[in-house]
C-alpha cells in the first residue's frame, strides 16, 4: 500500500466530522487525519501556536476546509494561508454544504485548489470524501516539506 499523507480536517460540526472520518476510515485513508473544530484552531495548528505549539514537524498534504464556522471562518483561514509564502503551497480543498456562487467565486479568488459541495445523500458524501482523500492524500504529489506517514514510520 502506498504511503499515506497527513490530512488536516477543519470542521466545526462533530457529526460531519464523524461522517467524514468514517468515510475516510472506510477506505483506509485516515491513518493520519488531524481534526480541528474551527478556523482559529486550524491557524494555530498551521502556525504551531497555542495547544499546537509542540506538534510534530511537517505540514499536512491537504487541508479539507469547511467554510461556515464560528470564530474564524473557512474563507479567512484560506486567505491567511494563501497570503503566507510558507503555507500557500499546501493544497486546500473547500468542503461545504453551500453552493452559493459567492462562496465558490471568493474561494477560487483566494486560491483554493478545489471546491466540493457536500451531497445530502450519505453514499454520495462518502464517495466524495473518499475521492478527495484518495486524490490529495495518495495520488497528488505534495510540495516538499509535507509529512508522509511512511516517512515518519521510516524515521
Amino acid at each position: 500500500m502506498s504511503s499515506l499523507q497527513r490530512i488536516l480536517l477543519v470542521e466545526d460540526s462533530p457529526r460531519d466530522a464523524e461522517l467524514a472520518l468514517d468515510a475516510l476510515a472506510a477506505h483506509h485513508l485516515a491513518n493520519e487525519v488531524v481534526h480541528v473544530r474551527d478556523g482559529a484552531d486550524a491557524l494555530d495548528y498551521l502556525y504551531r501556536r497555542g495547544t499546537f505549539s509542540g506538534r510534530s514537524n511537517g505540514e499536512p498534504a491537504v487541508v479539507l476546509l469547511d467554510l461556515k464556522m464560528p470564530k474564524v471562518d473557512g474563507l479567512e483561514v484560506l486567505r491567511q494561508m494563501k497570503s503566507d509564502p510558507h503555507l500557500r503551497v499546501i493544497p486546500v480543498v473547500v468542503m461545504t454544504s453551500s453552493r452559493e456562487e459567492g462562496d465558490v467565486l471568493r474561494s477560487y479568488e483566494l486560491g483554493v485548489n478545489a471546491y466540493v459541495v457536500k451531497p445530502v445523500k450519505f453514499q454520495e458524501f462518502v464517495d466524495a470524501v473518499r475521492q478527495v482523500g484518495a486524490f490529495w492524500a495518495v495520488i497528488n504529489e505534495p510540495p516538499p516539506g509535507s509529512l508522509r506517514h511512511s516517512d515518519s514510520a521510516r524515521s
Binding site: S13, R15, L67, K68, S97, S98, R99, E100, V120, F122
Partner: peptide, 12 residues
C-alpha cells in the same frame, strides 16, 4: 444553504 442541508445530510 449551509445549515438546513447539514442536518439532512446528517440524518441521511
Amino acid at each position: 444553504s449551509h445549515d438546513l442541508r447539514a442536518p439532512l445530510r446528517h440524518v441521511h
